[in-house]
Design a protein around this nucleic acid. Structure first.
Lengths: 230, 230
DNA sequence: TAGTGGTCTAGACCACTAT
DNA sequence: TAGTGGTCTAGACCACTAA
């Protein structure tokens, strides 16, 4: 077999797993042995096996070797784009309307989650996003303006806060939760659906270093699906 | 600055992005320049920047260089474990009950999606999964037994098909869709919730090479949240 | 065409852990 | 303690693409 690149090695290993040459739980040869067989450097095999371990297909431990995962915890990667790009990516026209923007006292639960003092004032923004003029999602956001590197733009109608934030802050860490919720009266009216309709909800809290930046709840209109490939 | 490993390089680059030394859209120095500055090999810098590009923080193109993403499409990775492990991971006792298992003609839409002839017969399985004895999720699965490397176990009550499949087939490709749905009468009764309750739904279709293996719909009970960190 | 990222190599050392 | 994966290096060549 002529020398292989790391992608070819990964493909060949996957083929052997599919064919059950290496069934679940089976131990693979060492990197050195595989490198000899494939006629490439050990680093190349290491890269290939490392990718498969990251994907959850293999389990690797020093000294213990590499085996095919018996309980593969598959990793699905979902893209979290800016809302405008998400809409435009579906070939639809994007629009949004800021329904409310005012400083307000953070609810106790939120302040706790963000590690802020009780009663601290945050910006509270409510935005409705449209696709082809129809309601697409309802955004309810709390924003800690104090930690932003520059003040919020005066004209909130020009660029959605969603987009302004990712452009301005660029790198944040945070957590995301996906869930389902029945539309309440307010959401139902805004999204133009019947009360109680099942909505797909994304809740996100983001941090800039140690400082809490924003906590947002996105309620998507009915029919929304988040897709990914494994 | 003494020599850094790739994780230290990644952290330092992230720090500079956070501090807006390199704001969104900014061009980074070349790998060679960074390697010289950090006192490490170019491959080390390459690894670090490659990870950040994969995460969506950087955009890299040959000849054009590396820049901070202006519209960071953040990649969130969600773990898709076996249901039993998911329940046990929450510290709860797992159980399941097979409600129905019978060969049946695949609905036209499903056959089309799987690329199978109309009217082909598949196994149709309905399973209710429990956490601490309470309904956790309702699974509705179509299974193409013809492509399995070994026959389904006779005793379906011993191991859930979910788990048997990942142990037996090991590596599959497929797509996953997350959505929200109102509980229908059957689901509501099984999950012991009111009809119309918003349920979190995962739909998955998996393939073994070119052959369709299974298509499954998982309807989680109320309150379920899928979490991830970005 | 020249400059940048992407990959490969051969070798080395380190980190972890089964024995 | 020995064996395995994880990482780093210095150098090389290739692939892509902006100029």
């Amino acid at each position: 077999m002529s020398a292989l690149g790391w992608e070819a090695v990964r493909a060949e290993v996957l083929r052997r797993i599919e064919r059950r040459d290496w069934p679940p739980g089976a131990m693979l040869p060492t990197e050195e042995q595989l490198a000899a067989e494939f006629g490439c450097a050990r680093a190349t095999v290491s890269r290939a096996l490392g990718e498969l371990a990251r994907a959850g297909v293999l389990e690797r431990r020093r000294r213990a070797g590499t085996r095919v995962a018996t309980h593969p915890v598959r990793k699905a990667t979902v893209d979290i784009p800016v809302i405008r790009l998400e809409v435009e990516g579906r070939g639809q026209r994007y629009g949004f309307r800021v329904l409310a923007a005012a400083a307000a006292e953070a609810p106790a639960g939120l302040a706790l989650r963000l590690g802020l003092a009780r009663g601290v004032r945050l910006m509270h923004l409510k935005t409705l996003h449209f696709a082809d003029g129809r309601p697409f999602l309802y955004e309810d956001r709390w924003l800690n303006a104090a930690v932003l590197p520059e003040p919020l733009p005066a004209d909130l109608a020009a660029v959605s806060v969603n987009e302004w934030l990712v452009k301005t802050v660029a790198y944040t860490t945070g957590d995301i939760e996906f869930s389902a919720a029945n539309a309440g009266p307010e959401e139902a009216a805004l999204l133009q659906v019947a009360e109680g309709t099942a909505l797909f909800v994304i809740e996100r809290t983001t941090w800039l270093g140690e400082a809490p930046v924003t906590s947002v709840r996105l309620a998507y209109g009915p029919g929304y699906r988040l897709r990914t490939v494994v």
